[in-house]
Design a protein around this nucleic acid. Structure first.
Lengths: 217, 217
DNA sequence: AATATTTTTTAGACTAATCTAAAATTTTAT
DNA sequence: ATAAAATTTTAGATTAGTCTAAAAAATATT
């Protein structure tokens, strides 16, 4: 059984490595975990002994299959709880992240499978992120981020990367929710902002925001 | 903000003192918390500094109004989650205690009030225990435990004290759920067992069990 | 009332997770 | 290729919660 802290480290490693496709440095991890590099090193040794990561001194970490599976179980819980909070309790999508960070650590396989069933086995959470199944399998669709789309092209918003409430409230204001169609009108080369049409309205979106909007094509 | 451990100690003190009506000894608390007396003493000092209990060396502890209020908030969460697990997710009443022990520590006032609303502001949990309201107010009805009832008398089961799954599964078998009417037929003075009629069937109930069944009169 | 027993507290140590400061190693720049 | 800079690790300390063993205080027994 993993401690709450071990689960959080593993989740961070999984995300930072894009699902295990690259190695993660100590400083990167320290930044993400809001802690010091020395603390990260200590934890890396622990996770390494448990064979959840491959760790080589001075060369960062890579998540193992075992570690990935554990991380995906936590991510599954996080996303199912977020879905519950929005669909059943009436939370808005900018309010759920913090509470789900706590709920994801509740230990009970039975609970999470019952919750999954109660929600009707949802495929994605309120931010459009796919929910891993019981076995930790993740269905990821091909996506492009808005900042890389060409003028004239269009697509349906599939998910939003950052869960910062400030971003999410802003996206609500301009009508940019997963499921909505979006059309790229123009790109300003000066500040790399993008002019788009959402819900029949023209809006300018900054580079910082456009990098966080993913569309299915 | 209280730690998970502090919340658990406070809850145990509240229960052992019958809601604050008597003082609790160090050993009693150690037993309830499955720990050693020395650890209890340490924690008593901490809770005392936070003014959640009155603690005098060698003379046990009394919960303060502040401590009681905190304990009731945790109990409120515990009972609301139990209700959710049974009513919405289809758990049986013997399966919910352990999971609720974890869920009761989730920190979010908004979450628990939304959950309360979602469940339709229930007055009691699946074991018949009253659920404190937002302000920590507890509506307790006058109750008698089955072992103190006289032959010929009857009442409606209002709650079950112990949450041990073995007891609850046994009560399921004999049909003894909160809400069911029960009639006392006879008392065996030899082993203090009681003969009762539930759901039109005669059953012998041991002293140990009858002490855990509470009826409203 | 003195002694034995039980309960409770204190003292000192342990683990998990963290920190700071110093040392080691790698990377970058000259 | 060597020095400078950045990154990472180690060493040693800290905090919360726990433990064991010994000491202190309260309670029970004779």
């Amino acid at each position: 059984m993993l401690s709450l802290t071990e689960e959080n480290y593993l989740k961070a490693i999984y995300h930072l490595s894009d699902g295990g496709s690259r190695s993660v440095s100590t400083n990167e991890l320290a930044e993400a975990m809001q802690t010091k590099a020395a603390s990260v090193t200590d934890m890396m040794k622990k996770l390494s002994v448990k064979e959840l990561i491959h760790y080589e001194r001075y060369y960062g970490v890579n998540i193992t299959a075992k570690g990935k599976s554990q991380a995906l179980q936590v991510i599954r819980k996080h996303r199912l709880w977020e879905t519950f909070l929005v669909q059943k309790l009436g939370f808005t999508w900018d309010e759920v992240h913090e509470v789900a960070e706590q709920l994801e650590h509740i230990q009970s396989g039975r609970l999470i499978d019952k919750l999954d069933e109660y929600l009707g086995f949802p495929k994605v959470d309120p931010h459009g992120d796919p929910i891993p199944d019981q076995h930790g399998k993740l269905k990821s669709l091909p996506q492009v981020s808005l900042d890389q789309m060409k003028p004239g092209s269009n697509g349906v918003i599939s998910s939003v990367k950052d869960s910062d409430p400030e971003l999410l409230k802003y996206l609500d204001k301009i009508g940019a929710k997963p499921g909505k169609r979006l059309q790229v009108v123009n790109r300003e080369s000066y500040d790399e902002s993008i002019e788009v049409i959402i819900e029949k309205k023209k809006v300018f979106v900054s580079k910082k925001v456009s990098k966080n909007i993913l569309l299915s094509i």
